[in-house]
Simulated assay, not measured.
Amino acid sequence: MTISVGDKLPEATLKTMTADGAKELTTADIFAGKKVVLFGVPGAFTPTCNNNHLPGYLENNDAIRARGVDTIAVVAVNDPFVMGAWEKFTGGEGKIVYLADGSGTFVKALGLDIDLSGAGMGLRSKRFSMIVDDGKVTALNIEPVPSKADETSAANILEQL
């Protein structure tokens, strides 16, 4: 079942890269007591994710935070090393938290997983965006076409904040 507005996020452990290597973060670490914009992408470095989706969140970082957001985070079914490389490549250090959901357990628990085996990518995350207030989903957008980033864009999130 897909998560809905009003639902609490499931408990999960994700990873992020630090100067000391991969670090585990629980959903409580990320979301408890905070207002967070979380967006999910099918994969780091993929064309739509890298060229269309993520850049909007980097460009609108200050505007999103000005609306009371504590953290902006992106999650993908990639390992933490890929997510760390993507963070550096995109210049997102200190702006966006890059979360690795290596086995897809978090996106599966959200009901936002998609099988992209036909494209050679295996299990991935659907393209989504959400606003989470203290672990509770207050806005949710799921892109109907994975190769688009319209409904899940930073501009749309700004309107919802």
Rank of each mutant, 00 (worst) to 15 (best):
D150C: 04
V69R: 10
G40T: 00
G104M: 10
D29V: 00
F81W: 11
L161M: 11
G135Q: 02
V107D: 00
N61E: 09
P47K: 02
E24F: 01
A154D: 12
G6A: 02
P42H: 13
D70W: 03
G120P: 14
R124I: 14
E159R: 10
N60R: 12
K108T: 12
M17E: 07
R127P: 15
L54P: 15
A66L: 05
D62M: 10
K148H: 15
M121N: 11
K148N: 13
A109P: 02
A22H: 03
V5H: 10
I30V: 08
R127M: 14
P146D: 12
L140I: 08
G122W: 09
G94A: 08
E151A: 12
G111N: 15
I3A: 03
G33I: 10
L58E: 13
G68P: 06
I30D: 00
A22R: 04
F31Y: 02
G120H: 12
D134G: 11
T18E: 13
L58S: 08
T18K: 11
D133K: 08
D101P: 04
D20G: 14
D7M: 02
D70P: 07
E11M: 05
A76L: 06
D62I: 06
D101I: 01
A149H: 11
P144I: 15
G68W: 00
Y57G: 05
A109G: 06
L161E: 05
G102R: 00
V145S: 15
I114E: 14
P80V: 00
E59K: 05
T138P: 15
I64R: 00
G40C: 01
A139D: 10
L9C: 03
A22E: 05
S4L: 06
I3N: 04
W86F: 09
K126V: 08
M130D: 12
T2N: 12
I72G: 03
P146L: 14
A76R: 04
N51R: 11
T152W: 09
A155Q: 13
I3Y: 02
E159T: 10
W86E: 05
M130H: 12
E143F: 03
T71Q: 01
K108F: 05
M121K: 14
E11P: 03
V36C: 13
N61G: 02
M83Y: 09
A139G: 09
L123M: 11
R127Q: 15
G102E: 01
R65P: 03
F128V: 13
A85H: 10
M83E: 06
